[in-house]
Design a protein around this nucleic acid. Structure first.
Length: 482
RNA sequence: GGCCCGUUCGUCUAGCGGUUUAGGACACCGCCCUCUCAAGGCGGAGGUCACGGGUUCGAAUCCCGUACGGGCUACCA
């Protein structure tokens, strides 16, 4: 059997959003699991909405997710170019071929005429596509008008000698469309440029795509593309149409649901492993039990048969939970770079500092990564260790510091820490006696100390925090409240 | 309007005719642990498998209708 070749074909009219990312993931995983080729093709034929910035953003997002493509922009390959705007020659060839076989015909109806015909037909209740007026023209008649310079488009002549066309979809099974409901769709516009359905069909043919894995919204386009490929005399690829991803309200995912692009999630503190994992399992399942799956397991087990047929609602809470799972699983040397980068953005740390006291960072890492879900939570939790410019939270001041016994606890801690050996065990042992000594519940003793040192009621464990802060700064912060 | 697709706990899903009193995960609730917050442990609530008909000894699983939701129906992709 020939090698499996799949493609992800985004149109750079916007950022890479979650639905597109998932389509890319499934294509990639399918190719990897079958020793196939994963191709990236940019469908930039809409000059109004396509931008190089969007293309760059899509490539960036894919790399971030770890989706490496074997052919496409920047890596190139034998089937390029990989931008549709650079493939005119291929489309012209295909067009010429279909003109000679008569599979397409020129249509001189104007856009206005078509619009009014459509409106009228709809009003009387039964619009089912172009009425094929120009299909009745003889070749000579048509050629004469073309020679006279009359503006025209080219349409695909849908075969009339069969009832229906059946496409076999690897997700949905066999799907039949009555040909009577199919339009003689426009393949080439008045200005000579080709339309999406034609370009996609020609490209999939020329690029020898074996499996077209794409969104459900293309299902109705498939018969047009199949008819086109047949007219070209090429083999029909296999299709797999993925269900849509919806927002929490069951409507199409959009800005009003918050972040929709891959980069937006990156900014919100999601790491690529988690997004890949979440999206992979949104519409596909390994066994119904597995919720945490790494890239290798995915690429070794992905199958089109286990893609679900029904749309899925995007659940941000579950993504965040997964993100937390990945964060918690990280070893100190894996997590520390995330801390450095988050702190770096605030000018609180840099890689030089990390180099200088790597052990210190590695001691801090496990205290942090097990209590957060998003990398954006890192800085608020450890900020007190990186600057003396800490402000004590108003709420914490009122609820903790102004309580009876708070100052006494801080004073007692100050005395103990002034000459306690500086390791976690010693600090722990020394401070643990305070509740009994002051005859107070542990929380009433330790919370004031925590607020004094970290500025907040929420922090990494106290004794470890004290140890990492260092004796000098610890005493300074306690003194500040006495 | 026409054509196509879909419908299992709030959400993601397992289930491919009997092993199911429908399993897992997130979210939710309670308890435990505890210096805060998390994490973790234990337990709980939550589904008349959209609805109605069939087929069958037996249906979430097969068939047909209906309802609801979605997609396409552009000289957009």
């Amino acid at each position: 059997m020939s090698q499996i070749r799949v493609r992800f074909a985004p149109s750079p009219t916007g950022e890479l959003h979650l639905g597109g990312a998932r389509t890319a993931i499934y294509n990639w995983a399918f190719a990897r699991n079958n020793d196939g080729v994963f191709m990236l093709r940019i469908e930039d034929t809409d000059p109004e909405r396509s931008t190089p910035e969007n293309t760059a953003q899509i490539l960036r997002s894919m790399r971030w997710l770890g989706l490496d493509w074997d052919e496409g922009p920047e890596v190139e390959g034998a089937f390029g170019p990989y931008f549709q705007t650079q493939r005119d020659a291929h489309y012209t060839d295909a067009l010429e071929k279909l003109k000679t076989t008569g599979a397409i015909y020129p249509c001189f109806c104007t856009a206005d005429e078509l619009a009014s015909k459509r409106d009228e037909a709809r009003k009387s209740g039964g619009y089912s596509g172009y009425d094929r007026t120009c299909r009745a023209l003889s070749r000579d008649q048509a050629q004469t008008r073309i020679d006279a310079g009359e503006p025209h488009v080219w349409r695909l002549a849908v075969p009339l000698d069969q009832d229906e066309i059946t496409i076999s979809d690897l997700v949905h099974g066999e799907i039949s469309f009555p040909l009577s409901a199919l339009d003689d769709y426009i393949v080439a516009r008045t200005d000579g440029t080709v339309t999406y359905n034609f370009a996609a069909a020609v490209d999939d043919t020329d690029m020898q795509i074996t499996h077209v894995i794409r969104g459900d919204d293309h299902m109705s386009n498939t018969p047009k593309q199949v008819l086109t490929i047949k007219a070209l005399g090429a083999p029909i690829p296999q299709y797999a149409h993925l269900p849509m991803i919806w927002g929490p309200d069951g409507k199409k995912l959009s800005k009003r649901h918050g972040a929709t692009s891959v980069e937006a999630y990156q900014d919100e503190g999601i790491i690529p492993e988690a997004l890949l994992n979440y999206l992979a399992l949104l519409g596909w399942s390994l066994d119904g039990e597995t919720t945490v799956i790494d890239a290798d397991t995915l690429t070794n087990n992905f199958s089109l048969e286990r893609i679900s047929k029904n749309p899925a609602i995007f659940d941000a809470a579950k993504l965040e939970w997964l993100n937390g799972v990945y964060l918690r699983d990280m070893a100190p040397e894996e997590f520390a770079p995330h801390m450095v980068s988050a702190l770096g953005e605030q000018g609180l740390a840099d890689s030089a500092d990390y180099e200088r006291r790597t052990d210190w960072y590695h001691e801090l890492a496990p205290l942090v990564n097990e209590r957060i879900k998003l990398t954006t939570e890192i800085v608020p939790m450890v900020r007190f260790l990186f600057t003396d410019d800490i402000e004590i939270d108003e709420d914490a001041r009122a609820k903790v510091l102004e309580k009876e016994g708070a100052i006494e606890a801080i004073r007692a801690a100050r005395t103990i820490l002034a000459d306690c050996p500086w390791d976690v065990e010693s600090i722990d042992a020394a401070l643990k006696v305070l509740p009994e000594q002051l005859d107070a519940k542990p929380r009433f003793v330790f919370q004031p100390i925590r607020v004094a040192i970290t500025g907040s009621t929420i922090s990494p464990p106290l004794f470890e925090s004290i140890k990492l802060l260092g004796r000098e700064k610890t005493l300074q912060r306690l003194d500040a409240l006495l």
